[in-house]
């Protein structure tokens, strides 16, 4: 494992921790898209089908368990927790899951590396992860006041994607036969979706003003 991959995993972990910290301590999920969180839960469920059958390393298994557990925990908090759910911005979080899930599933059926069930689910998870942030970005755009923790959550997620691209470039040059077009292209699309957010995030940080995305 190279430094980019490890840093990417750590920023991914940070993003989840920041979000759980916000929900657990402030008891608020204001500005957080339930749609995006449910899509992530589905992403991890589809991707980690091999968690019991395919052992790669202890690190890998533990991280998978953390991402699976935390994604379902966050969904539970927003839907079921009697205090947290009151702060959920239902009015503005209107993105339809199916508009993202269905095209991703069809695409996974059509374009995959191997047409085995687990492989198709893995590919589906890659496509879905690439676009799962969209409801969250739409919600951020509709939210007038983005609090610091929500901004940091999205920032860490974007950083994780950017570091994974560095990881792929590194692996391409250091490992023989390391070519994964599907992973790379969906990963690149996913990272590009953050470009706009990053622009405004850095501007607000540089000018020391509150983050706000233009409608």
């Amino acid at each position: 494992m190279n430094i980019f991959r490890f840093s990417g995993d750590m920023t991914h972990l940070m993003s989840v921790l920041v979000l759980l910290l916000k929900i657990h301590t402030i008891k608020s999920c204001a500005g957080i898209s339930l749609k995006t969180q449910e899509l992530y839960a589905l992403v991890f469920l589809a991707r980690y089908l091999d968690i019991v059958t395919n052992f790669i390393s202890l690190y890998n298994t533990i991280m998978k368990l953390i991402f699976l557990g935390s994604s379902f925990m966050i969904v539970w908090y927003i839907r079921r927790h009697r205090i947290v759910r009151r702060s959920y911005d239902k009015e503005h979080d209107t993105f339809r899951h199916l508009f993202l899930v269905l095209p991703c599933f069809i695409l996974a059926l059509l374009i995959n590396e191997r047409s085995a069930f687990k492989e198709i689910m893995w590919t589906f998870s890659l496509y879905l992860e690439a676009v799962a942030i969209l409801p969250q970005l739409v919600l951020l755009q509709r939210t007038k006041n983005i609090d610091n923790l929500t901004g940091q959550y999205v920032f860490f997620l974007g950083a994780y994607r950017a570091l994974y691209i560095c990881n792929w470039i590194y692996r391409y040059f250091t490992e023989p036969h390391y070519v994964h077009w599907i992973t790379w292209i969906s990963g690149l699309v996913q990272t590009l979706l953050y470009a706009d957010f990053f622009y405004y995030y850095f501007n607000s940080w540089k000018n020391n003003v509150k983050l706000q995305l233009p409608a």
Binding site: D50, N54, I56, N60, F67, R114, W122, H180, T183
Partner: peptide, 10 residues
């Protein structure tokens, strides 16, 4: 093809 090597990322 080595499946382990394919999906060793998270």
């Amino acid at each position: 093809e080595d499946e382990d090597e394919d999906h060793d990322e998270l």
